[in-house]
Each structure stands twice: as C-alpha cells, then as structure tokens.
Amino acid sequence: MRQHYLALLSVFASLPAMALTFQTRLENIEWKVAGDKFECRLTQPITDFGSGEFVRQAGEQATFRLKAYNGSLGVGSATLLAAAAPWQPGRGDINLGAVQVGSGDVLFNSSQAQAGRLFNGLLEGRSPVVRHYGRDGGFSEVRLLPVKFNKAYSDYQQCTAKLLPMNFEQIKQAEVGFSGAGIELDAAAKKKLSVMLEFIKADPTVNHIQLDGHSDNSGNRLTNRDLSRRRGLAVMDFLKANGIPESQITLRFHGERYPLVPNTSSANRARNRRVNIHLERVPAPEKPAPQAVAPNDTAATS
C-alpha cells in the first residue's frame, strides 16, 4: 500500500504545473487610440480580464499598465516579457524585468524604459506578456498580441504629436529671472510664460495664478520692494495681454525678504531677482440651491 501511495505521488509530481493565460482570440483583436492635449492612450482589450494599455502624459514618455476586472493575475512580483511569436523560430523571449502587481483597477505601471522596449517588441511582432508565478510552480499570465498594431501605433503617434509640452505637475510652479535692476521680461522669460499660457488656455480648471515678486539686496529695502512689485506687474501685464483676466491673478511683492540663496555673489543675486509663478486649480463655487416657494407666497411690494 505504501509503495502504491508513493508511486501515485510520483505521478502527480511529474505532472506539469497549471498555467492560466488571458488573451483575446486572434480574430477579435483590436487596438484603440484615444486622447487629447493632456494624455494619449493605446489600448488592447483583453477578453475576461480587462485591458493592457500604453499611456503617455504631456511632457513625459509612455508607461505600460494593466487594468483588470478581477484579481486573477495574483498580487506580488511578476515578470514583464516581450515574448517571441510562435511563427518566429529561433527567437527567444526578452525579459524586461519585474513589475509589482497590486490590487484595484490598475494592477501596475511599468517604467518608461520598459514601455519603450515593449513598443519596439510589438513593432517586431512580439507580444507584451505579464507572468505571475505561484508557489506551486504554476503561473498566470496576461498576453497582448501584435495583430493590427502598426496602424494603431501610427494613430497613437499622431495623438502624441499634439500633446502639450508639459503637464500640470511640471508646470504648476515656475520662476522668471531679471537682470540687474531691470524690470523687463527677456526672451527666455517670455518663452517660459508662453508655455504656461498654452497650458492654461487648454485646461479651464486652472483658474488662478499667484505671482510673487522678489529682489536681491543690492539696493535699499524700499527700492528693492518697489523693484519686486514692478517685476510682478511685468509678468501680470504679459499674462493680461495674452488673454488672462486680471481677476484670476494675485500679485504679492516681497523685496529682498525671501532669497533663494544667500546674496553673497553676483550669481546668487541673479537667482534672487525673480518672480515666482504658481498655478492653481480652484474649484468653482457651488451655486446656491434655489429656494422653494409656497404656492400662495407672493413677493412683497413697497
């Protein structure tokens, strides 16, 4: 009996570990491109799982992520591959490193480098694969297929060509500098402000701009305070001339009170002659709910 039991265990041990693969049938493969000036997405829906998608934000390179309806892949470290197609004999899979799979709708976001290599793999006919190994040696994997990719990638590139040069996190704080005792905006300052204006006009949720004028300590305090005010006004006038309502701009001026660096050299003083610009997304005030009027109420007259 014991020998029979050991033999049975040996048979089970020799069986291959279970593998569970999520992928869409070849005839149902589609790539979807969507986006605007802020973000572009290239997505392949995955049957009974969710989707795999490349996402590129304005001002950044793309990342790759998995979105899921359920937690079938398993939580923990998984391997990201650019897998060779069966019709590509002699080509091995390319291991792109680990990704950390979590729970929720978005399971992980790859690095930008990993996403770039996945793009290259897809153009060569490779499949993005995310493989999670279980304790029993089996694994679950999600596989995207390169079918119809080239046309979709061309449409995606057209979308990315229209992205703004920067996103909100990159642009929400900036500064422009001034030379000597000057109050004029130079070409570099106008270029930086023009990039900010392009974003503000594209994103109506950005509806407040805080300006803070500063100076170095070269003059007396009153002169420096006035210089910081006039520098702030120069920025405000540029914004107003380019369509920003004055009601959306707040100006403060501080003179030499808040240096970025000690005023101990000409280079440091140059850094302290500046206007700091901070963009804010201020929620619009809620409109008061209309008050109910009883049917027999009448307006008072005088």
Results as ranks from 00 to 15, higher is better:
Val195Pro: 00
Val142Cys: 07
Asp226Asn: 13
Val129Met: 02
Leu227Ala: 11
Pro288Met: 05
Ile249Lys: 08
Arg25Pro: 01
Glu246Thr: 13
Asp136Phe: 04
His132Gly: 03
Ala68Ile: 03
Ser10Tyr: 04
Val55Glu: 12
Thr160Tyr: 01
Thr63Asn: 04
Asp105Gln: 13
Ala161Glu: 09
Met236Lys: 14
Ala294Asn: 09
Gln158Trp: 01
Thr301Lys: 11
Ala115Arg: 05
Asn224Ile: 08
Ala267Ser: 13
Leu6Glu: 14
Ser154Gly: 13
Asp136Ile: 02
Ser215Met: 09
Phe49Ser: 05
Arg229Asp: 06
Leu123Pro: 03
Ser228Val: 10
Asp93Lys: 07
Met166Asn: 08
Lys67Met: 05
Lys151Asn: 07
Gln88Ile: 05
Gly92Val: 10
Val106Asn: 08
Gln57Thr: 12
Ser110Ala: 07
Lys190Glu: 11
Val75Cys: 00
Phe238Ala: 09
Pro86Val: 05
Thr298Ala: 11
Leu20Pro: 01
Ala189Asp: 08
Lys287Trp: 01
Ala234Tyr: 04
Val282Met: 14
Lys192Glu: 09
Val293Asn: 03
Glu198Val: 00
Glu256His: 07
Ala19Lys: 12
Asn268Ser: 12
Ile183His: 04
Arg126Cys: 01
Gly219His: 15
Ser51Gln: 14
Pro165Asn: 01
Glu30His: 08
His254Ser: 05
Glu286Cys: 03
Ala58Met: 09
Gln170Thr: 12
Lys32Pro: 00
Leu42Ser: 10
Val55Met: 05
Val261Thr: 11
Ser266Arg: 13
Gln3Cys: 00
Asp155Gly: 06
Phe108Gln: 02
Asn268Lys: 01
Ser77Thr: 15
His4Ile: 13
Val147Gly: 00
Ala187Arg: 14
Met166Gly: 04
Leu9Trp: 02
Gly137Pro: 08
Arg231Phe: 09
Leu42His: 11
Glu175His: 13
Ser179Tyr: 14
Leu26Cys: 00
Glu124His: 06
Gln57Phe: 11
Glu184Asn: 13
Leu107Asn: 07
Ala34Pro: 00
Arg231Tyr: 05
Thr205Asn: 14
Ser77Phe: 12
Val293Ala: 06
Gln57Leu: 14
Arg91Cys: 02
Leu26Thr: 06
Met166His: 10
Gln173Phe: 06
Ser140Lys: 12
Ala62Lys: 09
Gln210Asp: 10
Ala68Val: 03
Ser14His: 10
Ala113Asp: 11
His278Lys: 14
Val142Ile: 14
Asn224Glu: 15
Gly121Asn: 13
Ala34His: 07
Pro245Trp: 05
Glu246Gly: 14
Ala78Asp: 06
Ser218Phe: 15
Asp93Leu: 09
Leu107Asp: 05
Gly90Asp: 13
Ala241Lys: 14
Pro146Val: 01
His278Leu: 12
Leu164Phe: 07
Thr301Trp: 00
Ala82Cys: 10
Phe22Met: 01
Met236His: 06
Glu286Gln: 15
Asp237Asn: 11
Lys240Ser: 04
Ala78Tyr: 08
Ala62Thr: 06
Phe238Arg: 02
Asp212Ile: 06
Ser10Ile: 02
Asn296Leu: 04
Glu246Met: 07
Ala188Thr: 14
Pro295Thr: 04
Asn70Trp: 02
Ser127Cys: 02
Lys148Val: 04
Thr223His: 15
Leu251Met: 05
Arg117Lys: 15
Cys159His: 03
